[in-house]
Design a binder for these strands. Structure first.
Length: 494
RNA sequence: GGUCACGUGGCCGAGUGGCUAGGCAGAGGUCUGCAAAACCUCGUACAGCGGUUCGACUCCGCUCGUGACCUCCA
């Protein structure tokens, strides 16, 4: 494959801070790695936004013809709760609080994570490796880092020697940090006596005797450092250098910076060619985060049972809401914005079934090819889903106008428009019908409502509008809304 | 404190050195017995102050404001 379908695909590479043309290492294959969740508590909406961003990336790469191997890990090793390097690990803490085995915690929240992903129609990755399933690879990587001279053992733990690494390599390149500034900003050095420098980070950590999640290693019983699993697993499944690594902005430093250092130290190669970072979801201007306590669970979202929510919103409403904002911008949550998205999505989704009912004309009054071109251009420009959605509303206008008989389309244009709309709405944006239309209901209800529509038509025929309006009003109360059109009356759920 | 972003019409949010995305809300109109829906028309916004330019919302500087990272975090 020399060129992707529909022209070059540009992405903002956070390593260079520029928009670059995406050229995979081994086309048509693309290696994509995304940092997954740490499974010690419920995922919240902010987490969902990040996984949604890369879901759309995955969908778009696939749509333009690439074969993508998408790896997204599950962090199931208990990393430490507090600052510095002391204290309880997160999973063990949760296990104690919930009185469960650590691996029960891991399973419980992994299941929950998968449920949420399904709810938001986020596709599963090609490989979903766990940190605990790749201890051997991680231990081997620690050995390679020690062998290259950038790792040292101290009291059963192994640390990465950042200042030494920085002498020959660009530590801080991704996050735009300089070693001197980092050193100048170092906070207290308590509990860091094992480290040669406060900038050093653990790649293997000795477990104290009460620690629950620990494994044997050449340095004694312990557990891998937080940054190590991503390096080890991405290398295993995507190679020492691969195409795209994604994650939230907040992972840029230190997590991704450390990943680069580890890979360079262990294998001598920069691991990633294009880094992509999604921005944060905010609430009242503040980042939604577990530590802020301003997040909410999918159940709360659907039911509206949360102090921040005026009402419940469907998963697709939220998905659409997020896609109306570019992934690299912060997106502020608000009820007003969510309600606007709900209305907009409804308009878009209601136009989709009309595609089957358009009547072909001899001439064309809309340029579907140009619309198609603009849709592709939007997504090829750094996944600009807001612009794609704007174009899709142009498609909605065309569909509605044609359906009203105010705009002519040839059979070929109708076919092309239908294919375009379905591909963009369902395949690329991942928006699915949530079953509010009459079409998905069983035939009995449709037949029943049809009977009322007939009765009402008879009343209207007698010009007995009191009777016809009564039928309409009572059905409305029951959640059935009648709509009179040129070709008769249709209904939908109110 | 250091580093880096951002500040767009009532709200949410794209974007560009000159040709005023889109959605929601609002106003008027067409259609309809009425209504709903749909369609058409309407808002000339870009924090403030300077500078560069024939021309800046878009580039540069300063000021103000907000946020993120610097510690686990998507």
């Amino acid at each position: 494959m020399s060129e992707p379908k529909g022209g070059p695909f540009l992405i903002t590479n956070t390593l260079t801070r520029r928009k670059e043309e995406f050229k995979p290492l081994r086309p048509p294959h693309v290696g994509l790695y995304v940092c997954g969740p740490t499974v010690y508590s419920d995922v919240h909406l902010g987490n969902v936004r990040s996984f949604l961003t890369f879901d759309v990336l995955y969908r778009w790469l696939t749509h333009i013809g690439y074969t993508v191997r998408y790896v997204r890990n599950i962090t199931d090793v208990g990393h430490l709760v507090g600052d510095v390097d002391e204290g309880e690990d997160k999973i063990a803490k949760r296990a104690r609080l919930e009185q469960l085995e650590p691996m029960e915690i891991v399973q419980k929240y992994t299941n929950g994570f998968h449920d949420v992903m399904r709810l938001f129609n986020i596709l599963p990755p090609s490989i979903e490796p766990t940190a605990t399933g790749h201890l051997i690879e991680q231990i081997e990587m620690v050995k390679r880092i020690i062998a290259s001279g950038y790792g040292y053992e101290a009291n059963g733990s192994v640390y990465f020697d950042v200042p030494k690494f920085a002498e020959k390599h660009a530590y801080g390149e991704l996050s735009g940090r300089k070693i001197d500034e980092l050193l100048a900003n170092t906070r207290d050095t308590e509990g860091m006596d094992e480290k040669r420098s406060p900038l050093d980070f653990a790649i293997w950590k000795k477990a104290d005797p009460v620690h629950l999640m620990k494994w044997p290693s050449p340095w004694g019983e312990g557990f891998p450092g937080w940054h190590l699993e991503c390096s080890a697993m991405s290398t295993k499944y995507l190679g020492q250098t691969f195409d795209i690594h994604g994650g939230g902005m907040d992972l840029k430093f230190p997590h991704h910076e450390c990943e680069i250092a580890q890979s360079v130290a262990a294998d001598g190669h920069a691991p990633v060619r294009y880094w992509m970072h999604g921005n944060m979801l905010t609430v009242n201007g503040r980042k939604m985060a577990k530590s802020e306590g301003n997040g909410f669970t999918p159940e709360e979202l659907l039911t509206g049972n949360h102090k921040l929510l005026e009402k419940g919103y469907s998963a697709m409403t939220v998905r659409f809401f997020m896609l109306q904002c570019h992934y690299a911008s912060t997106l502020d949550f608000s009820n007003a914005a969510l309600q606007a998205a709900e209305k907009g999505l409804e308009r878009l989704m209601k136009a989709m079934p009309l595609l089957d009912r358009l009547k072909a004309a001899e001439t064309d009054e809309a340029d579907i090819a140009a619309l198609e071109q603009r849709c592709h251009a939007a997504m090829n420009d750094d996944l600009n889903s807001p612009v794609l959605i704007a174009e899709l509303f142009e498609g909605v206008r065309i569909i509605n106008s044609a359906h009203d008989g105010k705009l002519k389309l040839t059979a070929a244009s109708i076919d092309r428009l239908a294919k375009l709309m379905r591909a963009m709405v369902h395949d690329v944006l991942g928006l699915k019908d949530e079953g509010t239309s009459a079409k998905t209901d069983d035939g009995a209800l449709d037949a029943l409502v049809g009977e009322f529509i007939r009765m009402r038509a008879e009343a209207k025929g007698r010009r007995d509008f009191a009777a016809s309006d009564a039928i309409r009003d009572r059905l409305e109360v029951l959640g059935i809304r009648l709509k009179d059109g040129k070709e008769g009356t249709t209904w939908e759920r109110a």
